[in-house]
Design a protein around this nucleic acid. Sequence first.
DNA 1: TTGAAAGCGCTAACAA
DNA 2: TTGTTAGCGCTTTCAA
Lengths: 357, 357
Amino acid sequence: MPRKSEQKSKEYTIKDVAELAGVSTATVGRVLGGYGSASHEATQAVREAANKLHYIPNGIAQSMKKKTTKSVGLIVANICNPYFSSIARIVESVLVKKGYNIIICNTDEDGDREISYLKMLYEKRIDGLMIASALKESERKDSQFNMTYKESIPTIIIDREISNLKFPTVASDNFRGAYEATSHLIKLGHKRIGIIGSTISTFFRRVEGYRQAMLDHSLPFDTNLVFNKSYKNVKPGDVSEGIYATKNLLKYREYRPTAIFALNNLLTTGVLIAVNDLGLKIPDDVAVIGWDDFDLASLLNPPITVVKQSTYNIATIAISRLLQQIENPNTILNEEKKVILSTELVIRGSCGSNVTY
Amino acid sequence: MPRKSEQKSKEYTIKDVAELAGVSTATVGRVLGGYGSASHEATQAVREAANKLHYIPNGIAQSMKKKTTKSVGLIVANICNPYFSSIARIVESVLVKKGYNIIICNTDEDGDREISYLKMLYEKRIDGLMIASALKESERKDSQFNMTYKESIPTIIIDREISNLKFPTVASDNFRGAYEATSHLIKLGHKRIGIIGSTISTFFRRVEGYRQAMLDHSLPFDTNLVFNKSYKNVKPGDVSEGIYATKNLLKYREYRPTAIFALNNLLTTGVLIAVNDLGLKIPDDVAVIGWDDFDLASLLNPPITVVKQSTYNIATIAISRLLQQIENPNTILNEEKKVILSTELVIRGSCGSNVTY
DNA sequence: TTGAAAGCGCTAACAA
DNA sequence: TTGTTAGCGCTTTCAA
């Protein structure tokens, strides 16, 4: 079977190019790498040889020497969530212009998964890391924390407000956003408001906002209305999660909430499907507010009221700060370590304009 | 400023671990790499040392030796399109179990972008490549083609039915899917049917299906109804594209189509927004069929009829075949090089049940 | 302007 | 069971 090995086109190296061009490997490197200087003649010969062999430089070997891989990791909960895919898209488009590429990791908000991704990415020697789905505070023992995250590599956290974190952060004002949404519902007459966060890790700040709004309006904070568990029979990061949660929340007719606040797009969709399945009407039987705007929100009947994050700004600020750290490791971003962006309550029809009892 | 350099935690190497453990680097490799054999004592010492130093193996150096990077590239048009994000998600979840990670590239269906991504990925020495957004046939001169794609690396094409392609393919039956959708509209009485494909590269086969359906029903194939251009003022991969196309198609009252067939999710959303903006009613003023199902399709008013692809199957088959090629390079997948999956027409309300003139 | 050669951190063949 | 050592393909210092 000599055929086999002949078929397999050899990977040409800088050495092959050097030989063919009749120069040294150093010269090839200078020409192709664009550093140092080479005579016009040499330059020509090298280019020609490289073309002839369809030479593709070995980026691994380059990384080895230069100690930079031109790749950054992006850890998200689930790329199917429009919020994360938008972030990924924006981030990737600015990165690619600078020659970086992006490695995507989906954690489903699972701490163990995050840790193993981290390990993988650190082994890959990524130049930078963006985490949009960090360990939940509950899972994060400080000792463990310091062992899993490497401070020596440029890192930025999106959408997590973790106090003792050494990394810069850019996030929405989760507390305020939830506070406003909840207050809106309360003003409309709602007293029992369900909140569905499933396992999402920004859950806590948002629930705090919800809780504060309830308390400020002399309404009880009832943990039965707070849905933040994950269930074995339900895939996280799937609409079924929201459906399941909603059906649970609406199970008991007399105690059931008159409004539901869903903490991400996928959950919102799940809520809408469940409410529809149950034959209930929005907003008369149950009002709905979603977190994150989506293209079809205004086309639904009724249009869905949402807390809108400035996804574009979040992504843009995050990536520019990350690149700054990568390109200039001495920059200390201490002063403005944490950037918090305000959210906007987009009022559409899904909460009704008044509620009577 | 010696402070600075002290701060920066040194990257420990296998050599440091070896020293601390009092063994050779080879032994460290054997213990940590899990190959060869080492005494219990040595194993203990090495593990201890590695832990103490928080040693993280350098994957770059490993790749250098082993000639495998454990990463695969995924080229899509736009990760914000639910079709592509689902594919990415499924593919990533099977890859991660095998220790691979995934590098995502968004081309916006731009051939030049694809070529430069290809170059980047080949330099990175990816172990495998999955292309869900290949060069359009029109752009692909054979000579150029053979220079841009490397046959020596395992590659699989998703959703492209390119004839003389040397790579295995898994795709939906684009022709048949479009034929059925179009026929459905025709049976409902539509004679002027607009089709919006923008720049998407599977466009051609689908338009052929559309065309054939028209001809088979003795209806003219009018290129004015075929919208497949991209416009400077419109970002591809954004809802605005579909909005723009729809408004163009519906501009001239008397000649305007009574039905619109949108060739991906983002375009469908754009169509819905545009139709709504124009104050038209679906299905009475204009019927709509979308390509790709979506969670909210059945919740809209009216629910949207779609051509549903088996995304899960496409992704699963594609990645398993790719892994097969990666793990066993001698496997020739010739016999069943091309897998074509059938689509399903999911009839909901957006085409009405009858149309009168 | 050029080339020789060291070395990045690891694996693995070989010898002990 | 272990250690020595030769590379992997490149960049880059140092001399020429």
